[in-house]
Design a binder for these strands. Structure first.
Lengths: 241, 241
DNA sequence: TAGTGGTCTAGACCACTAC
DNA sequence: TAGTGGTCTAGACCACTAT
């Protein structure tokens, strides 16, 4: 009996075949790739091998399998440009590019800061903070989750203005005549936490950029510390010097 | 016959168990986790299920399996801070933090630019460029790959200075009295290309930050366009305003 | 030689979707 | 009901490492 299989790594070959077909639009965006059983017949391999190949594509963000339906080719959007400067805000950035956007307040708390927050905002002992979690959308698709923290003393009764939440900076400007100025930002690529991946509707293996920013009061002291987790594939950040 | 299995998703449970044990240092860094067969016995499941769990950990960057040896817990380094400003360079950044670093010229070419390069460097028709690929190390571990492009006219005979390559900016300063100034940078998270993942010695599922920079001549026109792919887990970029 | 991870086959049952 | 992807079992052979 001669062995049918001469070269190993069939799952890699199948993965490459599939990626090639996606790249060359043989399988079109938002359409299905052939079913697992179909690919088994096509390559004359066990279903497990096909599933290994598809797992690879899923991890790399090419496709999303849906139980009972099929395995769909993802739409990889052209990344939105986000200009990082001392004065730019999310809304302004999106509007300057003519992009339809939206924000949603996921939840908020008032209480004692973490030690990191305390340090970044140079808070006094026992000073309380407002902590907001905001989910932002572009073209109805979630793009980022931001956790942002203010000293309670700077924005007293902030939560009174949360009904019909639209824009954080709208609230600050309207009710506190406050226009925070970006002092510094750090950014880093990482994999999302499971909770963030769910909210952003991406698999756990799609990277996010984590952007930590410190915003100052116009008179110079820090009043906001925020940590944003942004879909890496939808977002490109620009800094000019 | 009662079914032995009541709840599904055993591979997820095993993955969580393993991650928990890594977090709490039951399995220590640079040490092995139990072998696949060991875990099969421990959880009384098929080896395939255990492998699914380990694949998950591998994708998330927790462990690296080595054929014939075992599956080792990765060391997740504290990210190096890289300050992005108009004048900072890689070497200076590393030295200011007292970090041992090194650069290696992987290869270089001289020829016509791509359309992107031509646009970014505002080149004339048929103007040639030097294109260098540089691999950088911190503490002997690869951290980034940079493709950097110069108009040939700005650095004539650049390749004459590549023997004993140490620092790109050293060469520019010594032989051309040139100190490029950062004009703008964009950054974006993504998964590495296969070739980059190999050079950076990371699995394909570990994210990288892609940083595109345009550097100007002191008199203001662009003379360098570079694209760096940096290990996301080893690198944190700081911008001050 | 024994143990490890890498690959593959063959077959089963389940949950979900479409019809 | 048929087809899809999700999960799991049982068993095999391979390549590599340690001894």
């Amino acid at each position: 009996m001669t062995k049918l299989r001469e070269e190993p790594l069939q799952h890699l070959e199948i993965a490459e075949y599939l990626i090639h077909n996606i790249r060359s639009s043989v399988y079109e965006v938002n359409q299905k790739i052939p079913s697992e059983n179909e690919l088994c017949r096509q390559f004359n391999v066990n279903r497990h091998v096909v599933r290994q190949a598809i797992a690879r594509l899923t991890n790399l963000g090419w496709v999303t399998p849906l139980q009972g339906k099929g395995c769909y080719v993802n739409h990889i959007p052209k990344p939105i440009l986000y200009v990082l400067s001392s004065h730019t805000r999310f809304s302004e950035n999106m509007e300057s590019q003519g992009v339809q956007h939206k924000s949603k307040l996921l939840n908020w708390t008032k209480g004692l800061p973490t030690s990191l927050e305390k340090e970044q905002l140079t808070l006094e002992e026992n000073e309380e903070v407002y902590r907001l979690e905001i989910l932002r959308f572009i073209d109805e698709k979630p793009i980022s989750i931001t956790t942002t923290v203010f000293p309670e003393s700077e924005v007293p009764n902030l939560d009174m203005h949360f009904s019909d939440f639209q824009s954080l900076y709208g609230i600050l400007l309207e009710h506190y005549q406050l226009r925070p100025i970006r002092s510094s930002s750090t950014f880093q690529a990482s994999l999302p936490m499971m909770k963030d991946a769910e909210l952003l509707e991406i698999p756990e293996s799609i990277p996010v950029v984590q952007i930590e920013s410190i915003m100052n009061h116009p008179s110079g002291y820090p009043i906001e510390f925020s940590v944003a987790r942004v879909r890496g594939d939808m977002h490109k950040c620009l800094v000019e010097f």
